[in-house]
Nucleic acid binder design. Sequence first.
DNA 1: TTATTAAAATTGTATATACAATTATGTAAA
DNA 2: TTTACATAATTGTATATACAATTTTAATAA
Lengths: 150, 150
Amino acid sequence: MSTIEELIRQKSFPSEQYKAIIHLLYTGNWVYNQSATRLKKFGITPEQFNVLRILRGSHPTPLMLQDITNRMIHKSSNATRLVEKLRLKGLVTREICPTNRRQVDITITAKGLQLLARIDEDQKEWPELHHKITRHEARELNRILEKLRS
Amino acid sequence: MSTIEELIRQKSFPSEQYKAIIHLLYTGNWVYNQSATRLKKFGITPEQFNVLRILRGSHPTPLMLQDITNRMIHKSSNATRLVEKLRLKGLVTREICPTNRRQVDITITAKGLQLLARIDEDQKEWPELHHKITRHEARELNRILEKLRS
DNA sequence: TTATTAAAATTGTATATACAATTATGTAAA
DNA sequence: TTTACATAATTGTATATACAATTTTAATAA
């Protein structure tokens, strides 16, 4: 058990709220790293995983790049470049939309779906994390985070 | 008021816990961006700001790079390169430690202290954020985050 | 002393973020 | 029709992250 005070060697904070915000940043990064470590053996990053899940969600309907961006956790991620990485691995296809040549239709491939299935199978994504807190605590966390952003 | 469901256009989640983890990643990034935007007019990034505050905390005692890393929110940040950016702006000094030439002593300069004072003055860091949630909610948030990482 | 190991920092590389500028295409107005 | 504007995506650049490899110096053992 390590407190945020121990983790960043800081004895005190100006307020409980201030500490919570630093703690939030720290823990967000921690969760990200946990996820990155787990995904490494599958050859993809958390951002690429996020894009693949989004595409699976709409499959077999393709999504244009803007739709992907809108659904991403990090809005300012560059979907063009992430999708290109996935395309090079054969996990998605890109096609210029015939009715509007400005937009590009992205579709997850069979290989992409299989990879997601393997990841789900292997670890059901983040099993430990999901059981660390109770359903009630998760509801509280969601409520407080929403209030913070309001 | 926007829910995480609206923000990432996702109607449902496998569980309340799963949603909370996605929500945590999203909100951590959101807080980071708020901070980055505010610091932009002072010519520094949130990571550089973090390093400066750490150095102010120990001032006038210098810190070696490892001490800085240990106190940073993002442990895998490259302190060498962040400090070099700050040095080029005249906000810190670097000196090879005379008693152990492997280590480098970093000290915040008067200019660095003045910059932090200006930032504090200008916005007391994140005033709005700190008042969005109550002291009790902050305590709950800290408790749940710690449990998540346990 | 010399060789070995450890410690502290630096450097290299691939990835992603943040944001601005640009290109290509479509739509609407003069 | 031509011009102007809007939309979708791409490209460019600076920053930071993640992690491995390397360099320099110090400490220790043979």
